[in-house]
Design a protein around this nucleic acid. Structure first.
Lengths: 305, 305
DNA sequence: CTATTTCTCTGATTTTAGTCAGATAATTTG
DNA sequence: CAAATTATCTGACTAAAATCAGAGAAATAG
């Protein structure tokens, strides 16, 4: 129920690009990695510095710190004890949940963190300084592009239980967005339903996309006896848009439909979802006569698999 | 004689770009740094793996390894002993200099290094795999751009002694290139000279650009009594072209001329150096009547400072 | 030729990073 | 309410990543 899906994209040769990525990595390690460490780990060991940074201005729970930095709880505990001894942090139990402990930076801790901030700034400036104005602009744009695409490649798509917390979160937000975007609003009880059991194998399935453990999109599929698969609940969270994730979800769903023996895909959609409609057309979906009476739909599409 | 020069570019606000650089660094550390380490440090501790990698197929001296990885000599020695015990490297004294020790990978070491190579490949692939073909191409291009600009920002320009090894290396290569490019060939004894003492303060100066300790370009200046500075020996090594280095050298020379009280710059150049000529024009140099009888020159330029 | 520097090594020691096995207390589940 | 789970902590331990002091051999400078 939770194995990640392998890539659905074509198996063209990656080799020349692999060389570029590796060369890039080497340069990054030399120019960013090493210096970064030396800059940040000046007064504190790197672990402490990272923790100090991660606690942030508003504080955080030990639990979150452990998760975000992916550190062993014993280790985090020890680091916190050390920071506490240096008078940089205060730890107290959460009022909400007595097991959880909240960490906040003391005044001295905030000062220390500001110092780290300054160092990171100085470092960034040292990269930009020798460049001309136009080079700087180009560098900024290229960095943004690399970042965007690397983040896109971090998104993982996997089959999920529609009743899981993450799946429900996606579907709720999907409904909320439809309600906002449809001129008529949207009431999920009125349209054609897709109940959890219908999106659970073997009746169908639901894919959920995650970015850094957090859900950022979903797409469902109902399998019908006649070999027709029905696409439902295609949604990408606003913060993950522009990463090509809709496209990836669609390809993954098509593959899943093929694997389930479907020969045709159906979907209906509302006229206000122009981006989605463009994507369906671009992927070879043909607009056809209405094949159901979904009250919110303006367009019906099909694609032979 | 060897202090790095500060930036000559305008002091516009770097702040928004600094934010982009820092965000980029964070993503890199998360996505490239951490994973890189885990990938490489699978069979060996990271230090050993890095060393194994750095020794390379052709071997290296302990001295160079220490410099390149910026490690303490005791530490390198220990790492080498460990690799030796594992049968991965052989260390023997240099025939050239009995103090220097040369390290070479054994067959087993080469196998091990190939394994690291494969891992790095796998990692690069894992970044590319989830992306669509067009995203991959964009990522490759953006990475190349970031890399090119970061390398550009690594170049350091400093005043150098014209008799130093690096300066002589640059000037020799400059002459060799002129000899190749001029239809008539080039004989340095025939044209107007620029002897070392003329390029040494206070009579003049020579800037040499370095990338990773290696010289990659130069630019000289002779100061005359009448407030006219004469540009000489502008050259960028082929491997450092496309980094905007010529432009940087030119700006640095202009600043140095101003600092020396010059009010005008003169230069003459050969018609075959079209890129250089374009750069001079672009930087406000006006073509004027011949002000000397340099036999290799076709164009004479001046710029009021 | 002598003094100094360079290169590498060993021994001793420290700091950092991280793991594993519980113990304890609070909370949630059945 | 009992049992299971969660969040955190301490103690005990290990491996890795250094650092420092100094020694010995070779090369270089004066």
């Amino acid at each position: 129920m939770n194995m990640p899906l392998t890539s659905q994209t074509s198996q063209t040769s990656l080799t020349p690009l692999v060389e570029q990525v590796r060369s890039f990595n080497r340069t990054m390690t030399e120019r960013v990695g090493a210096l970064n460490d030396h800059f940040l780990g000046k007064n504190h060991p790197l672990g402490e510095a990272r923790l100090l940074w991660e606690i942030g201005i508003d504080g955080a729970s030990v639990r979150d710190l452990r998760r975000r930095l992916e550190l062993d709880s014993a280790y985090v505990s020890r680091l916190l004890r050390s920071l506490e001894k240096q008078g940089l942090v205060e730890v107290k139990a959460s009022a909400h949940d007595g097991r959880v402990r909240l960490v906040r930076l003391t005044k001295a801790g905030l000062r220390e963190r500001a110092e780290l901030d300054r160092r990171a700034d100085t470092f960034a400036r040292s990269l930009l300084e020798p460049l001309s104005e136009s080079q700087r602009v180009k560098l900024g744009a290229a960095m943004a592009e690399v970042e965007r695409l690397l983040i896109a490649s971090m998104v993982q798509i996997a089959v999920a239980d529609p009743t899981s917390q993450d799946a429900r979160w996606c579907i709720e937000h999907y409904f909320a967005e439809l309600n906002q975007r449809f001129p008529t609003g949207f009431d999920p009880t009125r349209g054609i339903q897709a109940h959890p059991h219908e999106l659970t194998p073997p009746a169908g399935l639901l894919l959920v996309a995650h970015l850094r453990e957090e859900p950022v999109g979903c797409g469902g599929l109902k399998f019908h006896e006649n070999g027709i698969g029905e696409l439902k609940r295609m949604w990408v969270a606003p913060r993950a848009r522009g990463l090509g994730l809709g496209q990836r979800l669609l390809l993954a769903l098509e593959q899943a439909a093929r694997d389930a023996g479907m020969t045709m895909l159906h979907l209906e959609t509302n006229g206000s979802l122009t981006v989605a409609i463009a994507m369906y057309r671009h992927n070879g979906y043909q607009e056809v006569e209405a094949f159901n009476d979904e009250p919110y739909a303006h367009h019906w599409f099909e694609k032979r698999l």
